[in-house]
């Protein structure tokens, strides 16, 4: 079941179409990647999911019902441009946001205590935010986002500006929240993190969803029939017409040869393995799936090319 989904959402700003019939489906408990180049419409969509703005047309369903104001209490949002009230004390700041998200004072205080301990910030609770280091301020932002244990978490470029130590910490906490059942949306153009954590994604380019689905399936779909072959022999490894061509070979550090081969259109992996295994001492054979980064660039540039020629 989808925890949140949009159906044909359209949003227009000052004559510019920011979202053009955008439909996404985020299953319950999924880590969902919202991808796209800058200015594609990611933030516009996120603002609609957060009820910061309304769609001009289309529908947003939250946990099966049309998105309603009271759902705000079940959403946590960490925007890309995230600020803090610098003059406020850490504890006051967290409490303020938690109370606005609909938490009772006592619950908010308990949850805050737990999170401050978790992030080693307890002794900073009474300090003003302007006295904090950047890393600590980022932790405060994160706590403010998750304090009300939302069922849906939306992170817009969560790792930008984080140092590697905090990035790891954050990733760990996000995955922990996921384990506890939260549905998570990542908006990012950092493809490495998508492959690492996202199960599903939607790629938005020029206000439209141009590609979506399960990460593993899409990578398979974009398969270029490239395989990595390791053989123990040191003899010459030759391409075979009608079966496979060789993109690249090099001596393996463990002896033998390692090669990237591309299968011909009608050839199956089974055929190729059988053929090579007959003639060489085959030690490894596995598919080289395209990275999300390659898929991203390929899709976006072909899409841009199409719409450019379409416009002509």
């Amino acid at each position: 079941m989808n925890f949140i989904e949009t159906k044909d959402v359209v949003k227009q700003y000052d004559g510019h179409l920011a979202l053009d019939r955008v439909s996404i489906n985020v299953p319950q408990g999924c880590v969902f990647g919202l991808l796209g180049p800058n200015g594609a419409g990611k933030t516009s969509l996120i603002r609609i999911l957060n009820m910061i703005t309304r769609a001009d047309s289309g529908e947003v369903l939250f946990d099966g019902h049309p998105l309603h104001e009271k759902d705000i209490a079940n959403i946590g949002y960490l925007p890309e441009e995230r600020g803090l009230y610098r003059k406020m004390k850490v504890a006051d700041h967290i409490m303020y946001i938690a109370r606005l998200r609909g938490m009772r004072s006592n619950d908010a205080r308990d949850a805050m205590r737990k999170w401050l301990e978790r992030f080693d910030l307890t002794q900073w609770a009474g300090k003003k935010i302007e006295a904090l280091s950047k890393g600590m301020a980022q932790k405060v932002q994160f706590i403010s986002t998750v304090i009300h244990s939302p069922k849906l978490l939306i992170f817009d470029e969560p790792f930008s500006g984080f140092d590697p130590v905090n990035t790891e910490l954050l990733k760990k906490e996000i995955l922990h929240l996921h384990d506890e059942g939260a549905t998570i949306i990542f908006s990012t153009h950092n493809m490495a993190s998508v492959e690492e954590v996202c199960e599903e994604f939607a790629l938005i380019n020029r206000s439209r969803v141009v590609l979506d689905g399960k990460v593993s399936e899409v990578r398979r779909r974009f398969s270029k029939k490239l395989y990595k072959v390791d053989i123990a022999d040191t003899m010459k490894f030759d391409p075979v017409d009608g079966l496979f061509s060789i993109e690249h070979t090099q001596p393996s550090p463990f002896g033998g040869i390692t090669a990237d081969i591309r299968l011909a259109a009608t050839v199956t992996m089974h055929d190729a393995v059988a053929y090579i295994n007959d003639r060489y001492a085959l030690t490894a054979f596995h598919e080289l799936l395209p990275s999300m980064n390659e898929i991203f660039i390929e899709t976006v540039s072909s899409n841009n090319h199409q719409s450019a020629s379409h416009n002509d």
Partner: peptide, 16 residues
């Protein structure tokens, strides 16, 4: 202040 220190985006996601 809210607009320039960018807290506003967090605020409007919590309230109208």
């Amino acid at each position: 202040e809210e607009k320039t220190n960018r807290i506003i985006e967090v605020m409007v996601s919590c309230c109208k």
